[in-house]
Design a binder for these strands. Structure first.
Lengths: 329, 329
DNA sequence: TTGTAGGCGTTATCAT
DNA sequence: ATGATAACGCCTACAA
């Protein structure tokens, strides 16, 4: 039930090179012959073996995408962007969940290399030195999305500026005690950057940075929930909280709602990312939107360019964020 | 910078067959030789080419997974289950978003076949006859998750029974006007099944099925929102609504909240699936939990068994659902 | 325009 | 225990 190029050749009464030519749409083959071959292909239900092809031509039309966890709301959207563009250029994608675990990252990278992927897309908060060494060694085209490292190509947004702008927005709305629930403080490009944006906004408006107003979170719902409970138990409560990502922000809203604190009247809450859920929650969350789908799509697009060795303007792409004012502020 | 088995052989001063043996952990090679080879591999940073290997041994240790849309909340969780088990058995997965589009499904299936995947996992509401023919023709091991068709292996839950049980729960709570927002009515295994469960529960309790109480939805937030608005505008409102999936249920809750209808006091809402968001929403949604992660994990596990030609008890696996009573009812 | 033959990097059979 | 060699299915000079 599985035929190869030889079978087609025999059936069509031509050589295998001719069959190969029609498969690859070489212009040189005569119309008649082409039709004969096409007919044979059709009749046998023949499909070329991409593995054999890859071995010969040394590319596989597949790329690997390493992300922390597909079941974390942030990633599906960017993966979708990647996949759409990949599909458009006839690439398939290997999905790898790393859980931010360095060992898993290393292992997956090895496997992807062995499977001869043409390139890889990497997400996660930091790239370890080990991984970087490996990347350099194998010399596989790579692009980072949502993070940045050394001279590797990347697509990101300016997290500091974005954070600063949403905190400034809060200040403009007359809030003068603004709390923050941060991300991970060992993570420079997201966690620290957003915290810095918060600090900068305060400074620019001559407001004091008070340590009791900032609590470290961990990006997940629970830490937002707990962070908010902590901030709301302060004797001198904040009137607004900037939460470093939407999932935590939703946790924070939940905490406030449970305590019967009115949003936004008694407490404004703003998030970061614009995950799907943020607009569906009630009240809908004011947030800084990262263009997640676009980050994926553009990342993949750039990767195809790199793979085709097309000229590329810059290897560090910084996309625009946007402020989405909704009901929570 | 890229070496092959020949380079290793030369460097170690042995033949390529020996190198191949140590790579594949053949027992016959002498300790000393093995060490020599391992050293050469190490020094060169050699990684075997999986493509060449696959061509020879006729398996690729990769499987394809076709789902409607990874950015739809339901799928990431099952994909994660699939990937975890796949990883455990050293498989990689090609992720394919079909958008429930038959053409895309056909195209992806062809590509997966050409890339010689060892098996495929298929999700989506129906499998078209065309696709089925193709599956049979290529004879690629396949397993359906969350849907079912002919004699193909599948892992599902009993949607009718689950729907019936949650509606019965509502009835037990003294609701006697229960509305429903359905899924797609052309989709037998999910849409129709859940509607049937609703009908059965009514019947069993000698309640009338009233057409004005059921509105057709489409699984997405917006249709739940609109469906609820419609039901709430009835002169004789339902006191409870069974919504065919969580995303719509959340839309329905949003509609009620906006209209200042108290949940659950004036209106109980229950959903289906138990997506991540359902417990984070306020009020948290009462729902029938599909074991999404397990469906993925078990599906993949069964697939590995099929691939290893291990005996398999049954090809139609029906998992248990569970009722999660939360705040919305 | 078409065919012949070598090779892509492995594995596996058969000798040695 | 090790080595030579023929596949695996395809592409691509080169020859005809």
């Amino acid at each position: 039930m599985k035929f190869n190029i030889k079978d087609v050749a025999k059936k069509a009464g031509v050589s295998i090179s001719t069959v190969s030519r029609v498969i690859n749409e070489s212009k040189v083959v005569r119309q008649e012959t082409q039709e004969k071959v096409l007919k044979a292909i059709e009749e046998l239900g023949y499909k070329p073996n991409a593995i054999a092809r890859s071995l010969k031509i040394k590319n596989t039309k597949t790329i690997g995408i390493m992300i922390p966890d597909i079941s974390n709301q942030f990633y599906p959207e960017v993966v979708r962007g990647v996949e759409d563009i990949a599909n458009m250029y006839n690439y398939n994608i290997f999905l790898c969940n790393t859980d931010l675990d360095e060992e898993k990252e290393m292992k997956y990278f090895d496997v992807l290399a062995e499977k001869q992927v043409d390139g890889v897309i990497l997400m996660g908060n930091i790239v370890s030195e080990e991984l970087y060494t490996k990347i350099m060694f194998y010399n596989i085209p790579i692009i980072l999305i949502g993070t940045d490292y050394e001279n590797l190509p990347s697509v990101t947004i300016d997290n500091t500026k974005a954070a600063k702008s949403i905190v400034s927005y809060l200040i403009k709305k007359e809030h003068n005690r603004i709390g923050m629930i941060t991300g991970k403080n060992y993570d420079p490009v997201v966690g620290v950057a957003r915290l810095n944006g918060y600090k900068e906004a305060l400074k620019e408006n001559e407001m004091l940075f008070e340590t009791e107003l900032v609590v470290e979170g961990g990006y997940r719902f629970k830490s937002g929930y707990e962070g908010a409970k902590k901030l709301l138990s302060l004797s001198d409560r904040p009137t607004a909280i900037f939460v470093a990502n939407d999932e935590m922000a939703i946790g924070a809203m939940r905490a406030a709602l449970e305590l019967n604190v009115k949003i936004p009247d008694e407490l404004a809450i703003v998030g970061f990312d614009n995950i799907d859920m943020s607009e569906k929650f009630y009240p809908a969350l004011t947030t800084v939107a990262q263009p997640m789908y676009e980050m994926g799509a553009i990342g993949m697009r750039v990767l195809t360019k790199i793979l085709n060795e097309e000229a590329i303007e810059t290897h560090k792409i910084v996309l625009n964020y946007s402020l989405l004012e909704r009901e929570s502020s």
